[in-house]
């Protein structure tokens, strides 16, 4: 079970598909004009990802190595078709605004990437959690981008007016260039936060390392003792 929690953490934060691995950029940039679109796209992808990871992991010993790619694609495409019909039937408005990007989930590199690098080599349960983690990470990324773009580009969040009436929307943010700008700023912000956290983690861990190293007097251990060896 610990393994499963680690999978979730991995997908959501450590290897977030949007902000770290930069996978699935096409839907990321194209459909995130509003927060609700981001969530819709993210959750559809999550469903496909979990189901396809599960099935591929079950079939991993049956699928011959030489034809694994076509086999994966067939599995993914079947689930995408199911999701597409469900969306069309039950949330037609979302279906309309996501448009061509729903069938294009088939070629989303996150799904094929997880199938190839994780599900085809691991047991079923971790694969399912890997799918959940990655899917939620993707949903999280898309929703963040969607919220920022919708807020600046139309003054709303989840279709609710949050900016004052006098606010004039900066339309470029709900057009294509805005997607690139927002994505870049969010990735930069995430990297900054992670770098700060890592620095803090290192400082906290230092005295311990000092004690293990057998330094008799740890008072002088303010970074001068190990000045160059560590990579920041």
């Amino acid at each position: 079970m610990n393994n499963c929690a680690e999978r979730l953490y991995n997908g959501l934060i450590k290897e977030n598909p949007t902000f770290v691995m930069m996978l699935g950029m096409c839907p990321t940039l194209a459909v995130t004009t509003s927060a609700i679109n981001g969530i819709g796209m993210g959750l559809s992808t999550t469903v496909v990802l979990v189901l396809s990871n599960m099935l591929i992991s079950m079939l991993r010993k049956i699928i011959p190595d030489s034809v694994r790619m076509p086999a994966f694609i067939v599995v993914v495409a079947s689930f995408v078709t199911i999701v597409q019909f469900l969306l069309e039937g039950f949330v037609p408005s979302l279906y309309a605004s996501l448009g061509i990007y729903i069938p294009l989930i088939v070629v989303n590199c996150i799904i094929l990437g997880r199938a190839e690098s994780y599900a085809s080599k691991n047991p079923v349960l971790p694969s399912i959690f890997d799918g959940i983690g990655m899917g939620l990470g993707f949903t999280f990324g898309l929703t963040c981008i969607g919220i920022v773009r919708e807020l600046i580009g139309s003054g709303k969040v989840f279709n609710l007016q949050v900016m004052p009436r006098s606010y004039e929307p900066v339309t470029i943010f709900i057009l294509a260039p805005g997607a690139f700008l927002v994505l870049a700023f969010l990735v930069a912000g995430r990297n900054k936060i992670m770098a700060n956290l890592e620095k803090k983690g290192k400082q906290a861990a230092k005295p311990q390392g000092c004690a293990q190293g057998g330094c008799a007097s740890c008072s002088g251990c303010d970074g001068k003792v190990f000045p160059t060896g560590e990579k920041e």
């Binding site: 004039e168 339309t171 470029i172 943010f173 057009l175 260039p177």
Partner: peptide, 8 residues
């Protein structure tokens, strides 16, 4: 161009 697209 940024302003032209944003506040046409």
């Amino acid at each position: 161009c940024f302003l032209l697209i944003s506040f046409t």
